[in-house]
Nucleic acid binder design. Structure first.
Lengths: 223, 223
DNA sequence: TAGATTGTTAATCGATTAACAATC
DNA sequence: TAGATTGTTAATCGATTAACAATC
């Protein structure tokens, strides 16, 4: 695979391509052109071809792209075939929800263990997986050497937990804590899920929409 | 407030400014320059001033910005003072986690009711809020006229629920279902939280990092 | 006042779109 | 073969950065 520098915008579109191709596969479509894909995803055909061309030549002139072959290429680009392992830290509601309902396996990630501080949770099983005591985090992570840590602890503990995880050699943190982690430059890759940012953006767009509608209403009254 | 067309990139930075300003406020900082803010947020001072100038003139030459005044302006831009109301649909793990741990109030949104299909949940209270039967969704939403619906139902029901909500006049959907909702153009504003996209992006960056490290190792062996 | 820092205009950079030769 | 569609190069568009006059 080529390893040229690819812009973040392109990276963020890759999972959307993957999802769409899965959908096409499921509905029995086995080939698609950039034109048709663009129509379905509200992207220009040019952009789609540019995006793919960052990674190789996956299409065929006069034909388009084979859906399942392209899907496989994108899965590979996203590292879905690398058998990443993950530990989940903090089995509160969100952590619990992820264990129960998020199909890590479907994205090529194996969830190998989970941790919590609450003594009544430690030792129980959730989704078939035993919950370990947070006190053993360092030891177990040293032992299992997971690639990824899914961080779901309360805000207050976020940075401490992150520090331990990084010292134990975790390479990526999937951060649900809504805290901007204070990570030494160039060590671990952090991917944040900031619920609040998303809700606030929605608030912005709602406000904008409402203002527009009111402006229009005021104008039509004024005529 | 100005209502010029503001790019999505700018909108997505606003919640980050808000968070940083809250942090500065909490640590007793009451004024800051675009230079210092840029240092702390890894943005250029130019970008920060450009961003703010989309909405007005919030600073003062030779002084910088008053932290709490600027915070208030951004909160307003994000609609945090509009008293938006929300209903939550689907009290599984994620829905439950949001009710228990996400401070809607802190972002200016009031969660007014929640719905589920499971008869053993309906009628109980979660976080002090009664859970209504999904069968009454349309009726209750017609009655309460919430601005926002927080969609946490299983994938399969996502589009049906969205349809009902839109018909009942909901203006925005905060979508946790990982399904790209099929919404008539220009009606409701949808803000998606796609967990999987985020994990896959992490997978990409991890893969890239690993490849780089291996390339480096191979090179040093070759020397 | 002198120094600092804004808001804004101009310059640069990067991302998206268009065009088209190559070719299946 | 003729038509379709790619991959890529060039053109355009938009976002970021730099520069600087205005001014607190």
């Amino acid at each position: 695979m080529k390893r040229i520098k690819v812009s973040n915008n392109v990276i963020r579109r890759l999972p959307r391509y993957l999802q769409k191709l899965d959908e096409l596969n499921a509905s029995g479509v086995d080939r698609i052109s950039s034109g048709e894909l663009g129509r379905q995803m509200s992207l220009t055909p040019s952009q789609i071809r540019q995006d793919f061309s960052c990674f190789g030549e996956f299409g065929q002139q006069g034909y388009g792209y084979n859906v399942s072959a392209l899907r496989a290429e994108i899965a590979k680009i996203l590292g879905m075939d690398r058998n990443f392992t993950a530990v989940l830290v903090g089995v509160g509601n969100i952590g619990h929800a992820l264990i129960d309902h998020f199909s890590f396996k479907h994205y090529g990630v194996e969830l190998v263990s989970a941790f919590d501080v609450k003594k009544d949770v430690v030792g129980t099983k959730i989704g078939g997986m035993e919950i370990y005591d947070m006190e053993n985090l360092r030891a177990v992570v040293d032992e299992l050497k997971p690639d990824i840590a899914v961080l779901c602890v309360p805000r207050f503990y976020a940075n401490d937990a992150a520090k331990t995880l990084i010292e134990a050699g975790v390479r990526g943190i999937w951060n649900f804590t809504n805290v901007e982690l204070d990570i030494p430059e160039g060590t671990t890759i952090v991917e944040n899920i900031y619920f609040s940012d998303s809700l606030l953006a929605l608030g912005y767009y709602l406000s904008e929409r409402i203002d527009e509608m009111e402006a229009k209403a005021a104008k039509s009254r004024g005529v």
